[in-house]
Write a protein that binds this DNA or RNA. Structure first.
Lengths: 210, 210
DNA sequence: CTGCTTCCTTAGCGATCGCTACAGCTGGCG
DNA sequence: CGCCAGCTGTAGCGATCGCTAAGGAAGCAG
């Protein structure tokens, strides 16, 4: 439908006019992330967000759409910055132990809010924020599936017995991570969580013996 | 201090006039418990409570004080009805295994909301409901202390080695319970949780050698 | 400079929050 | 019966929620 009567024009109309913003969008998003991380989705109000970001509501809505989309962008930034999990390593046991130790340190790192945003930020929340809850739940299940796949890889390579319960192990270690989250939010320190990881790793099955 | 000037009077003035209520207080409290259990403290509004209980706001405030006190009464009813944990048994391992199996069944019981009210109902919630959060956190820490005491009792009786990390085990099994809560809220079924308990019990230390 | 576009600011929208004033009804008492 | 106490329903309080209309300030084209 777009009429272009002058073919001599070198610049077509769809020239994306970059918004001239008076504030740092990335910095504001980082601030919003900390707010959501600390208080959760529903308990973080737009007014507290705008106050923390140093902007006014219309600026927030112009830059991020609405509170819901801002939260999704914050979650994306979180999983890009903090929430990345790599299960590389010689075997599943080593990889899991390393990931759990890293989580013990990260969840209690005093330079940011305790625990994990994906686990904590939408556990409560009545009807109306059902899509937020399912968004985070999907991420949790993805992590659990990652655990299961890593264990299954060891089984396929013969490092673990064929009758190893990969699903049960995945549910278990996902629950351990979520329990560490709760403990960290309750004030348990890094050393206690690391000792807990030692206990949890004792539950890992023995390698396939000769 | 109570003055009773007329000894002939069989009924003293402090005769507690039982309120003439037009609704069943206990039944209404049970309904409120389910609401808080499902949506958490902050996300459960007074209007949704009164609608579910079949009463009007003034009746709620006359019978329970305010939303905060109603919640505490609901928590008390919960811990009296569902949340009781008994660690009796021949040794800590048996007792813990029984408790965890019971929890696996209870958190996924379809006859009531999933998971545990004490763990779930106040994880989010901004400033202003800090006392609610600390109330539930204290109950969680009491359970964790119960775990530690049960393990320590086995150590004192010589059933477990002296160098057993009672605190680490308590943190671990508390985290397992809290992880089961999250998994149950995410839709994991009873059988998967029970297999997970088997994995978790594999982390329990071997009894003290002969 | 004048126009045009785009953002920021102020102010406030309707809805809902926890909570309560007020009047009416109802039951126990003399 | 009349009186009073105490609960019940209606209606609404001030505050906050997520969100937005309207006008002024600022950069770019001519």
């Amino acid at each position: 439908m777009s009429s272009e009567p002058s073919p001599a024009r070198p610049e077509p109309p769809p020239r994306a006019r970059r918004p001239r913003r008076a504030f740092d969008r990335d910095a504001a998003l980082a601030v919003a992330l900390r707010e959501f991380w600390t208080y959760g989705y529903e308990s973080t109000s737009v007014s507290s967000l705008t106050k923390a970001m140093g902007i006014n509501p219309p600026s927030l809505y112009a830059a991020f759409g609405d509170k819901r989309q801002l939260f999704s962008e914050a979650v994306e930034l979180y999983s890009r910055t903090y929430g990345s999990v790599s299960l590389e390593g010689p075997d599943a046991r080593t990889a899991l132990a390393r990931v759990l130790k890293h989580i013990a340190a990260d969840y209690t790192d005093p330079s940011h809010p305790p625990g994990c945003l994906v686990i904590t930020a939408a556990t409560n929340g009545g009807p109306g924020s059902e899509d937020v809850k399912s968004e985070l739940r999907a991420m949790r299940e993805a992590t659990k599936a990652l655990f299961a796949a890593r264990v299954q890889a060891d089984i396929d390579e013969g490092l673990l017995p064929d009758d190893t319960d990969a699903e049960g192990l995945a549910v278990f270690y996902a629950a351990v991570v979520q329990g560490m989250n709760q403990q960290a939010c309750d004030g348990v320190g890094r050393e206690a969580l690391e000792r807990m990881v030692d206990v949890a790793m004792a539950a890992f099955p023995e390698p396939a013996g000769r």
